[in-house]
Design a binder for these strands. Structure first.
Length: 495
DNA sequence: GGACGGTGAAACTTCAGGTTGCCTC
DNA sequence: GAAGTTTCACCGTCC
């Protein structure tokens, strides 16, 4: 283990080139997706004698139309260099990981993704950034995370040693890194229960699963948790938990009964009375859905709202939750656009409390909903990357959460007897899954037909199963290809 | 004269990751 | 707070 002083310039590129010269591989850890891409690009420009034409081509074409990100990645890959972060398409990630294992790819510039989950060791782990942006400005990352990254150095089967290299930006930075990371101890682990959304979800699930049925049992449970161990102040923990119980009761997710109603005044704050808890039907379902009760209450209010509802209503309702965060932020240049969008949709927005409370967040939720709307109107990945700066991997992630929330809306609407909304929610959900307009839904139900083929068929005037049955096989083959044509016809015969 | 291209400084943005639900032939 | 990207003014060149 050693710390390098800065070279004249671009020490990271030099280290990467040196690694390749030694016929070894390296992982370079940086703190943002953009930096990962830029770093990979900078290194790849210095490489002359590697040419992975085929792999580069494969990586470029994982989507129907390549995005700028795909092109950038493909250019790097050609030279044996990759960038890797959560914004990549999953197929691309897989290709990079596999080809790093085989040794074809020499260097991966990555965000911490690669440190935790994946088993991708390399001769060198180069840790370029030890600070990361947080709500309190730039902060050193935890020692534990540093160890995760440094731990990628050395491949047990191939190398007898590994090198973990930190890049210091100055002499004083060098000192800091040495003290904090090389000599320092990992910090204590903190319970995540303390965050209120987690506490809310947890309390409801304890009651819904009948693990606890009374105030006494609830408090006993929390006293035994790691959280209480760290919290120490039991009185405060008590009041925090009781506040959550109060909220759950107000939202009618649990029912509370007092054995002795005379003593259950506010005077009994720290009296473990015989208050008993039971989850309502609604509360049970919310717990099963793993929803934060606060989110659930917001969704319920929205669904009950009497306003006319269009797709955007639902998309905004789910965009305005904690689960969808971080939301897409609104830039100066586009703020007028988003305001205009808001004006157009204002009458269909079910939850506009934040318009007055927290305007900036509200506008972000509008932009996020707008992004989802573009997606269900068949805008492709490159368009969304350019317009919203949302990368393919992030589209997948966001739409997946949105899908879960829409499913939750559907389940809630069912319990609330809001039957008239069910079919529109199902429709939005399906459109979100496939990224298609409503007119393609009948086609997309068939196996092997996604947004691209469905659009092609539709434009050839084949609009549903009936149309597919009517069209002759040769025309069908012409539209969707030889194999797919046969496949579809087969399915129609069986179904 | 004007279209084009290159350059650099200033202004502007953005900042890691990824569990939960249900379903499928 | 820092790195990366975009924008814009400025200058020189070529047709």
């Amino acid at each position: 283990m050693k710390i390098d002083m800065p070279f004249e310039h671009s020490e990271t590129v030099d280290l990467a080139l040196d690694t390749i010269k030694k016929d070894k591989q390296a992982l370079i850890f940086v703190n943002t997706k953009n930096s990962a891409e830029k770093q990979a690009e900078d290194i790849s420009k210095q490489i002359k004698n590697i040419d992975l034409e085929e792999l580069s081509y494969e990586i470029l074409n994982v989507l129907p139309t390549p995005t700028k990100q795909c092109k950038r990645l493909a250019d790097c890959i050609k030279r044996g260099i990759a960038f890797h972060h959560s914004g990549l398409n999953s197929k691309q990630r897989e290709l990079i990981e596999d080809n790093f294992r085989t040794g074809a790819i020499k260097i991966i510039c990555c965000t911490p993704t690669l440190a935790a989950g994946l088993d991708l060791p390399a001769f060198r782990a180069i840790i370029k950034d030890l600070k990361r942006f947080t709500s309190r400005g730039m902060q050193f990352i935890p020692v534990l995370e540093y160890l995760q990254m440094a731990g990628r150095a050395g491949r047990p089967k191939f190398d007898s040693v590994g090198e973990a290299i930190c890049i210091a930006k100055s002499d004083s930075n060098n000192e800091e890194i040495y003290e904090k990371y090389i000599m320092g101890e990992p910090e204590d682990i903190y319970s995540k229960l303390a965050a209120e959304p987690v506490l809310r979800t947890y309390v409801l699930s304890l009651i819904a699963s009948e693990l606890v049925g009374s105030k006494k049992e609830l408090m006993e449970f929390f006293e035994k948790t790691f959280f209480a161990h760290q919290y120490e102040d039991m009185a405060q923990l008590n009041s925090l938990v009781m506040r959550v119980v109060g909220m759950l009761k107000d939202w009618e997710f649990i029912s509370v009964e007092s054995a002795d109603s005379e003593t259950s005044d506010f005077t009994s704050a720290d009296f473990f009375g015989e208050e008993t808890y039971k989850a309502t039907l609604l509360g049970k379902r919310i717990s099963e859905l793993y929803l934060d009760p606060y989110t659930a209450s917001k969704l319920i209010d929205g669904l009950k709202n009497n306003k006319d509802k269009v797709e955007f209503s639902y998309l905004h309702l789910i965009s305005n939750t904690l689960e969808m965060r971080p939301l897409l932020s609104v830039t100066k240049a586009e703020s007028e656009d988003i305001e205009e969008k808001l004006e157009l949709s204002r009458e269909y927005i079910l939850d506009d409390e934040d318009f007055f409370e927290d305007y900036y967040t509200f506008m972000s939720s509008i932009k996020t909903a707008f992004f989802l709307e573009e997606w269900i109107n068949e805008k492709d990945e490159d368009f969304l990357l350019t317009k919203f700066k949302v990368r393919p991997g992030e589209i997948k992630y966001k739409t997946n959460i949105a899908d879960w929330l829409l499913y939750s809306c559907h389940e809630l609407a069912k319990l609330l007897m809001l039957k008239e909304q069910l079919s529109s929610i199902v429709k939005v959900r399906l459109r979100l899954q496939y990224g298609v307009k409503e007119e393609l839904l009948p086609l997309v139900k068939i196996k092997g037909i996604g947004k691209v083929r469905a659009r092609k068929l539709f434009n050839n005037n084949i609009k549903d199963v009936r149309g597919l049955k009517k069209v002759d096989i040769s025309s069908l083959k012409r539209i969707v290809g030889e194999k797919m044509g046969v496949n579809i016809k087969k399915q129609l015969l069986m179904g």
